[in-house]
Every structure is written in structure tokens, then in C-alpha cells.
Design a protein around this nucleic acid. Structure first.
Lengths: 124, 124
DNA sequence: GCAGTAACTTGCATCTTGCAAGACAGTAAA
DNA sequence: TTTACTGTCTTGCAAGATGCAAGTTACTGC
């Protein structure tokens, strides 16, 4: 498969030219879309993300946030100095995943009736 | 988190009651949605699935098909005897993931312009 | 000082993935 | 009847990812 690089130097088309494949190379795991769900719901800080009901491990959260930043879906920025503390916000590219989350959410609520609808912060 | 079992004995709500979480417990990896993509596109047999451009390893394909069958998204059935050969078809629950694939596909084609649109068999 | 808070990082055991090769049951060709 | 081939998996093993607990750094408040 041909390898191409975008302006951020990230390797693309590593597996194929399918848009789904390239999406899965970023968020194809058990955690990344949950982080994006939380960010869409308004969470911004490490502790807020850690405290979601799925209990993500801190090393995995750090790893995923880094990957999302490299992929351009998330921006990390300091919200205070002394001590420096950071928060994470979705870029447009990240926000554009909202329809994906909504589609998964609709599928989930249809086929797993006990699950609760994707809505405000704190609803997991 | 409480654990509940449905009629197929599959553990549910292992991580949370979020519909996204429960979806990701089935297809939250780099391969499963590609297999479902292929099945949506009309592929049915092991060799057809193996021959997709992403080059899935045969043990991973077998494992994912088994998981999809257990989760009720796919049905395995013999299409011939002597020797027995099987094909895989999506259930309604599996077909219902089509909007998810379409949403990911739209996101991918928007943000990775080199990728080609989700369409007929053989397009990877 | 001394505990507390927030954002990570490290160590280590276990689980999952990926690649190659092999198993098994037939069919077709030489 | 031996040899090759097809198709659906299975096995072995190395490498990488995950999960849990604990540690680090840089402050703030008491």
C-alpha cells in the first residue's frame, strides 16, 4: 500500500484507502470514542475524563489523548500557570465525529434496551 | 458495575450502561467494522473476507467472526456439504450498523481526501 | 512543614495481535 | 494412486497493548 504524508507528518493510508480503515486507525479501540464522547459532552480535564464510569486507566488515557492530539482531533492547552494545568478540547475534525457517536448510540439503545441515551455530562 | 445476561448468555453492561460502550465492547477494534463493511458490501465467504486490501490475518478473522456470531450480528451457515463450507451473513442487528459505517465513511472522506467512498464489493 | 490536588509516568503481569505454518476434508488432474 | 489444489480454520510464538498500582512533579492551603 502506498504511504502518503499530510502536513502534520502523520502516516496515512497505512492499511488501505478506505475512509473507514483510516478512521479506525485513529479511534478503532475500546477507549478512544469514549473519550471523544466525554469531550463532546463538555468534559475538558484529565480528572473529569478519568472519572467516567468505564474507569479508564490513567496511562491509557494519556496515550489516547496524545494520539488524538497528533491526529488533530484534540487540542491540548494550559488553562492555568503555576502549576501548569492542561485541558483538552475537540478541534472541528474531532467534533465532526459527533454523527458517528450518535449512530452508535442509536444502534446501542435499539439493541441493548437497558442502556441509557447519550446526553449530558455525568451520564456516562 | 452490575452484570446482566441476555437470552444468548452474553455478558452485558460490563463497563457501563452507555450504549456506545456496549457497542465498542463488540466492535471496538481495528478489524471488526471492516468485516461488517465487507458483509454489508455483499461478501460472504472466508476467502472473500481474507482478500480485502487491509490483509487481515486468518486467526483474527476467525476470532472476530466467532465474536460477531456470539453477539448476534452474524449468522454462520453451510452453503454446501462435502466438504462443508460456510458463509457468513449479517442479521438485522448487524445490518443496523450500516448508519455507523456511513457516518465513519463520511468523516473519513471529509478529513482524508485521498480515501475513496464506501461502495461496491472490491473497493476495500 | 505536611497533606492535598492535578496531570501525568513507570513497572510489571497478563491479554491481544500479527505473521507464518499446519490441519483437515474434500475435488481435480496426471 | 499420487500429487496438487481449494477453502475454512487452528496452532505456535514473538511483539505489542492493556490494566492495575504506585510513583513523580509542581504547586496551594493549613
Amino acid at each position: 500500500m502506498t504511504q502518503v504524508q499530510d502536513m502534520d507528518n502523520k502516516l496515512m493510508f497505512e492499511r488501505s484507502q478506505c475512509p473507514i480503515t483510516n478512521g479506525l486507525d485513529i479511534f478503532g479501540d475500546k477507549w478512544t470514542l469514549l473519550i471523544i464522547r466525554d469531550l463532546v459532552l463538555g468534559k475538558r480535564r484529565y480528572q473529569e475524563l478519568i472519572s467516567s464510569p468505564e474507569n479508564i486507566a490513567s496511562n491509557i488515557l494519556a496515550h489516547r489523548l496524545k494520539r488524538l492530539e497528533v491526529a488533530g482531533l484534540v487540542t491540548r492547552r494550559a488553562y492555568q500557570q503555576k502549576p501548569e494545568r492542561y485541558e483538552y478540547v475537540l478541534t472541528e475534525k474531532g467534533k465532526d465525529l459527533r454523527p458517528v457517536l450518535e449512530a452508535i448510540s442509536r444502534w446501542g439503545t435499539k439493541h441493548y434496551p437497558g442502556t441509557s441515551v447519550f446526553r449530558a455530562v455525568g451520564q456516562g
